[in-house]
Amino acid sequence: MRILFFLFFSFSVCAQVQKGQASFYSNRLKGHRTSSGEKYNPAKFTAAHRKLPFNTWVEVYMPKTKKTTFVRIIDRGPHSRKRIIDVSRAAAKDLGLIPYGFSTVHIKTVTEKSRIDSLNAMESAEIYEFEPKSATSDSLSRNPQ
């Protein structure tokens, strides 16, 4: 019965979108061992979560900046109960989280295939930059007298 309850609880944690506060790791933790035994590297897209299994990929969306990134769970935490996830420095930079220190995020687990598909879609999307027509070039060409 305990195993059945554990499996149900684990599935329900993994299957839903969580909303809450995120923060990021301090630079002074570089090289320290995480709960999974892996060394923390601020340049990798990793994170700490209290319950998700190690090596689970998570999509993190920050509504304030409207940015999304993917992180792999390698540690337990965050230690503050007010937060639901701690992300690496690289992930925080990608989200635009660094100037804020912490912010509201939405997180959900993703499969390896859906993560790769999302990354490929983001890479192949065409980005259009809007360049306003210069008022000075228009007015100079007309040369009003």
Rank of each mutant, 00 (worst) to 15 (best):
V87F: 06
A48M: 11
T46M: 08
I74H: 04
S36Y: 08
L97F: 08
N55A: 02
K64H: 14
W57G: 01
L97G: 10
I84F: 05
G37T: 00
L97N: 08
W57M: 09
H49N: 15
I74R: 00
K39E: 14
I84G: 05
S88P: 04
K82E: 07
I84D: 04
V60H: 06
E38G: 00
G96P: 07
G37F: 01
A92S: 15
R76E: 11
L95H: 11
A91N: 01
H49V: 07
L95I: 13
A48S: 13
I74N: 08
T65H: 13
H49P: 00
P78E: 13
I85M: 00
G96Q: 05
H49L: 04
R76G: 08
E59L: 11
P42I: 06
D86L: 04
N41V: 14
K93L: 15
A47P: 00
F54R: 07
K66D: 15
N41I: 07
I98K: 03
D94H: 14
Y40D: 13
A92D: 09
R83Y: 11
E38V: 08
G96V: 09
S36D: 03
K51A: 13
L97T: 12
D75G: 01
R50K: 12
T46A: 14
K64S: 13
R83H: 07
K66G: 13
P78M: 05
K39S: 11
F70G: 13
A48L: 04
R72D: 01
T56L: 10
G96E: 12
R72E: 08
T56E: 13
R76M: 13
R72W: 03
L52S: 06
M62S: 14
Y40T: 01
T56Q: 15
P53R: 04
V87D: 01
G77V: 05
V71R: 09
V60M: 13
R81S: 08
T69F: 12
K39H: 02
I98S: 09
E59R: 13
K67I: 08
P53C: 05
T69H: 13
K51T: 15
T56P: 02
Y61W: 11
L97K: 02
I85A: 00
V58N: 08
D86H: 07
I73T: 04
I74G: 01
K67S: 10
P63A: 12
K66P: 01
Y61P: 03
K51Y: 10
S36G: 03
